[in-house]
Design a protein around this nucleic acid. Structure first.
Lengths: 189, 189
DNA sequence: AAAGAACTTAATACCTGGTACTAATAGCAG
DNA sequence: CTGCTATTAGTACCAGGTATTAAGTTCTTT
């Protein structure tokens, strides 16, 4: 039943992660050590007491409502030549990924690319009307995505074709062809 | 400062509902009564102590995470038949629109549709690999968007084609064809 | 085998945010 | 004034800890 300290602490961490509601007493039974040992372990691993853990879970729940405000999922613009080309950078953080596997959600990459394409247009009103997009590689928590947009064709009728390619390092992770409508008040973005 | 009992209890209930983390002590200050009075009030109203309230909020949260992260869908899922069809509703609010003209940003509609398409897939891992989308009408602040997703083709190779159409009332405002990858750990969403 | 270090357990005082219960007081109506 | 409700006070007790000091118990290393 009894496992060495290192192993016990690894298991402890896992156990608590998967059930934050468990008390020291239960843990001590589960690992067949004294309560004090569990507490030392928690200290070393910097795991807070059960009430704090519960509070943490609960408070995450509360912000969930406002979490996906989406308003600024767009990254930082680092270069912009209107009606020509633009570059933005987005660091993938916790709120951008599926909690289960830490892979960035599709609409995050889309949002970065779309926002960039729209920003590129030198006009008061610019709205996306159409987009063909491909996700070519997963993007993980902590990675930095650089999106590069270029105007391909400025049509006379108010439509502009913009291509966006997003990279993590050398690798292309996303690309899309956007048609942006400018000026008029029809169409959609 | 001091309000009659009935009124105080009504406010107490509201206060706690909107902030379940509040302690008796704070409440007693807020209502300028003693802690004991607050406790009598809670008794009468059958409101549990703060730790229980927090635990309750937290456990709701856990359920959600386990129940295949409905929370990760944007908008409210109102119907879901796995691997068949799904419907979600999203009310367009301030954070979804361009402040200049109160038109919903493209990636908001995309996010609703994309999330719905991904949620539809009856698998642990589901990631968008490709999407062709069209925005056919502007969506304005305050409008309610209903997205309807339907699985079109379940290919053998792990790819599934999903079509999503989003409506405001009778009008189609967005539609898209998504290719979702399931299972494996390649590709991207 | 003895010494030391690392690990484990024990014991005790104290903390927060309560419950449960008893009793005293305040404020007002009849 | 009596009676009633509402409020406040006080005490004992609880869970689930923290923090600290001290005492074993192993394991290793010389």
């Amino acid at each position: 039943m009894r496992v060495p300290k290192k192993e016990r602490q690894r298991l402890l961490q896992e156990t608590i992660e998967h059930n934050p509601f468990i008390k020291d007493e239960e843990l001590s039974k589960q690992f067949s050590v004294s309560i004090q040992t569990i507490r030392l372990d928690r200290m070393e691993l910097k795991i807070p007491e059960v009430r704090e853990r519960i509070k943490h879970v609960a408070s995450e729940h509360l912000d969930e409502v406002k979490s996906l405000s989406m308003s600024e999922v767009i990254g930082d613009m680092i270069d912009l030549k209107l009606d020509d080309s633009a570059i933005s950078v987005l660091d993938i953080e916790k709120e951008h990924v599926f909690s289960r596997n830490e892979i960035a959600r599709g609409h995050v990459l889309f949002a970065q690319a779309n926002s960039l394409a729209v920003a590129l247009i030198n006009d008061e009103l610019a709205l996306t009307t159409k987009a063909d997009i491909r996700f070519s590689r997963q993007v993980h928590l902590g990675e930095r995505v650089v999106a590069k947009a270029r105007v391909m064709k400025l049509r006379g009728d108010g439509r502009t074709d913009v291509t966006v390619e997003s990279y993590v390092g050398e690798e292309c992770v996303f690309d899309g062809d956007f048609t942006i409508y400018r000026r008029g008040e029809e169409e959609q973005a």
